[in-house]
Simulated scan of single mutants.
Amino acid sequence: MSALLELLNVSKHFKVDSGLLGLKSDFVRAVDGVTLDVRKGETLGLVGESGCGKSTLARCIMGLNGVTSGEILFRGRSLATWEEKRLRRHMQMIFQDPYSSLNPRQKIGSIIREGLDIHEIGTPAERKAKVEELLGLVGLRPEHASRYPHEFSGGQRQRVAVARTLALDPQLIVCDEPVSALDVSVQAQVLTMLKHLQKRFDLTYVFISHDLAVVSHISDRVAVMYLGRIMELSPSETLFATPRHPYTEALLSAVLSPDPTDRAERIALTGDLPSPMNPPTGCPFHPRCPKAFEKCPNARPELKEIEPGVRVACWLY
């Protein structure tokens, strides 16, 4: 399966002024040397604690944040060489909050049609028909086009956001926590819809979430992120059955089991997530790692393939 998207040692640092009159400067290392590939037609899940850099990485992929170093390739070409208007036809994004991502002053039909208008695709009649078709694909009715976002529930608004992303027939959709703001029953409906649309239109997803149950349900492969770096990358079934990195083990141990007799031991991490302004030396996870040893604080492990399809950044391997 060929790579549709490639990230080559991508970093994104934000400058922060501090001290008297802002004369001192420091950098928040939100993304710190990420190397990934996303294969055509797959769903790559991206998980990690809040503040680990997932959303920043998503915005870098979309070209909304320029990278500090490294390179992002889409269809073998650097994002820097793509004209932004052309790139938007191939890459779209679903945001976490379906209300704030929709213009409250625009009707739903206008929101979905906006991309078609900007790219001058089809006649006005064809655009209207396309909007009605898209509404049907996401489980809404044609008459909904004349309503405003506040007239819909959260789940319906997220369906509108999905319809908007599909308007330009993209190849890649970055889903940034697309169901975290929804009720559990609505989450299941939206996830089922996303999987159906993926099969129908041969879509590729980067699916970002902190909910491991959701990620295991929808993802083909999963990347585990910590303090701006990828700790583990593995097929979904393999990762959830036999996690390799101690951080992945700790994350999975926190997932509640539906079986009340399951008494699996919880791995409690000590301390808080370190500041991305002053990350630890060596392995970024070593101050909280229950398996750390003398090498961990002194040298940073690279993401290394330990068996086919499984990559881990840990000195244990």
Rank of each mutant, 00 (worst) to 15 (best):
A3C: 11
E6D: 03
L7R: 12
L8E: 07
V10C: 04
V10M: 14
K15Q: 15
D17V: 14
S18K: 15
G19F: 14
L21Y: 07
G22L: 15
S25L: 09
S25R: 14
D26A: 13
D26S: 14
R29N: 02
A30K: 08
D32E: 05
D32Q: 03
D32V: 12
L36H: 01
R39S: 06
L44T: 04
L44C: 12
E49T: 03
G53E: 06
K54L: 10
L57D: 05
A58Q: 00
M62S: 03
G63H: 10
G66L: 12
G70Q: 08
G70T: 12
R77H: 11
A80N: 05
A80Y: 09
T81A: 10
T81V: 11
E84K: 15
R89Q: 12
F95D: 01
Q96P: 02
Q96K: 05
D97R: 12
L102I: 06
R105T: 04
Q106D: 00
S110E: 11
S110M: 13
S110F: 13
I111Y: 06
G115I: 07
L116C: 11
D117N: 07
I121K: 13
G122N: 06
P124Q: 14
E126C: 08
R127P: 00
R127Y: 10
K128E: 04
E133W: 04
L135S: 05
L135G: 03
L135H: 07
G136V: 08
R141C: 14
E143Q: 14
E143V: 08
A145E: 01
A145N: 02
A145S: 09
S146D: 10
R147L: 14
E151F: 08
G155T: 13
Q156G: 01
R157S: 09
V160T: 04
V160D: 01
V162Q: 03
V162L: 11
R164H: 12
L172K: 09
L172I: 13
C175D: 01
D183Q: 08
Q189V: 11
T192E: 03
H196F: 08
L197I: 09
Q198V: 12
K199A: 14
D202N: 11
F207W: 02
F207P: 00
S216C: 03
I218D: 01
V222S: 10
Y226F: 14
R229I: 02
I230P: 04
I230R: 10
M231G: 04
S236H: 03
S236T: 15
T242W: 07
P243S: 09
R244L: 14
Y247M: 03
Y247L: 02
T248Q: 03
A254T: 07
S257E: 00
D262K: 10
E265F: 12
L273I: 12
P274T: 03
P274L: 15
S275L: 13
P276M: 13
P279S: 11
T281Q: 06
C283Y: 05
A292P: 00
P297Q: 15
A299R: 14
A299D: 04
R300F: 05
R300M: 11
P301F: 15
E305C: 07
P308V: 12
V310T: 11
W315N: 05
